[in-house]
């Protein structure tokens, strides 16, 4: 995404003939101006009202003792919410869990999706079949996937039945979601299963933009498949790579649905997440101010990681 942002997406791209200069056609240019503004304004205003204003409100609320339903008006409490937040063991557990989740899911899902995209991009028999099948979990909502896997992860569920059959009864599978050591890995496995098809498609779209003549030339030079990947495919995917990295990371940090449906943060907070904590304190405990403080910390984390990622991908490019 970095390079996409950097480069002007519009007319002044290289090699374009200069557009007819505006001053010559004064009357047309004025209506053109208005048309341009009319096209842009709805998006800008709606975004301001529905994303930026609430974002500012969220920051304001974080410094108050606002409650969801309360007879008293909210009062300014300074950093109280943050002081309480940093003394909250569950919040720290949530931070660690989300970090763990993101650190495993981002490389695993992005990498697996890339491998699948490259495999599926080859004209192997049945490519369409594989593309279709891999995309099926993506069109299934995370709630349904979670409910499905909830059944599969039971002590006597499908996964343990398969483990039992494959090892001829030698290995007994754990009670996946009720064991603190396996609960997070179980969530990770399911999340990757559901999401990998989506990112496979994005990689696939990136692969289409690499000019075929590069591969033709490489074939003539007799390069190895690895060199072909390292020197043509990988650099050719730089824009796609940054886009995928940013989207998977933000998705991973926002982990919520799976947790809400499958474990409610348990067992013993082993799967609680920052967003889950925010929703819990915002609704179950109705502490809007405290929940906003969590949201604010979450936003800062997302922003920091995005900036670091952008910086790193710029270095390489």
């Amino acid at each position: 995404m970095t390079s996409t942002i950097e480069r002007p997406p519009a007319a002044p791209a290289a090699g374009r003939p200069a557009r007819p200069s505006r001053p010559k056609r004064d009357r047309t240019s004025k209506t053109e101006n208005l048309a341009g503004l009319a096209m842009l304004t709805p998006a800008v205003l709606l975004l301001a009202l529905f994303i930026f204003v609430p974002a500012i409100l969220a920051f304001g609320l974080a410094f108050t003792n606002a409650r969801l339903i309360s007879p008293y008006p909210a009062t300014f409490v300074g950093l109280d919410n943050f002081v309480r937040l940093f003394a909250d063991a569950a919040f720290f557990r949530a931070l660690i869990n989300v970090g763990y989740f993101a650190l495993v899911v981002v490389p695993l899902q992005a990498g697996l999706a890339l491998v699948m995209a490259i495999l599926v991009n080859k004209k192997v028999r049945g490519t369409t079949f594989f593309r279709t099948v891999y995309f099926l979990p993506v069109v299934t909502s995370m709630v349904v996937v979670s409910l499905l896997w909830l059944f599969m992860y039971r002590q006597d569920g499908l996964i343990n039945v398969i483990i039992d059959r494959v090892t001829f009864g030698l290995v007994t599978g754990p009670d996946w979601l009720n064991d603190t050591t396996t609960s997070m890995p179980a969530i990770i496995l399911m999340s990757v299963w559901q999401g990998v098809g989506f990112h496979m498609i994005i990689w696939l779209s990136g692969l289409q933009t690499i000019p075929a003549d590069l591969y033709e030339a490489a074939d003539l030079d007799g390069v190895s498949p690895w060199q072909r990947f390292r020197y043509i495919t990988w650099p050719g995917l730089s824009a796609t790579r940054s886009l995928i990295l940013v989207t998977i990371t933000i998705q991973a940090l926002s982990l919520f649905t799976q947790i809400s449906v499958m474990t409610q943060g348990g067992p013993l907070n082993s799967t609680t997440t920052v967003v889950y904590e925010a929703v819990e304190s915002g609704f179950a405990q109705q502490e809007t101010g405290y929940a906003s403080a969590i949201s604010l910390v979450f936003f800062v984390i997302v922003l920091l990681i995005s900036v670091v990622q952008r910086f790193l991908s710029r270095e390489k490019a």
């Binding site: 002044p12 994303i51 930026f52 809007t288 936003f299």
Partner: peptide, 30 residues
Amino acid sequence: SRNWDRKLFRYSFFYLLAAMFIPFPVVALP
């Protein structure tokens, strides 16, 4: 994209992209 040479439109582009870094959970409560 057709008014990229004007500041207003260029800044609007970055403004619109900035929303990508505000996930829903951040603004959920307000």
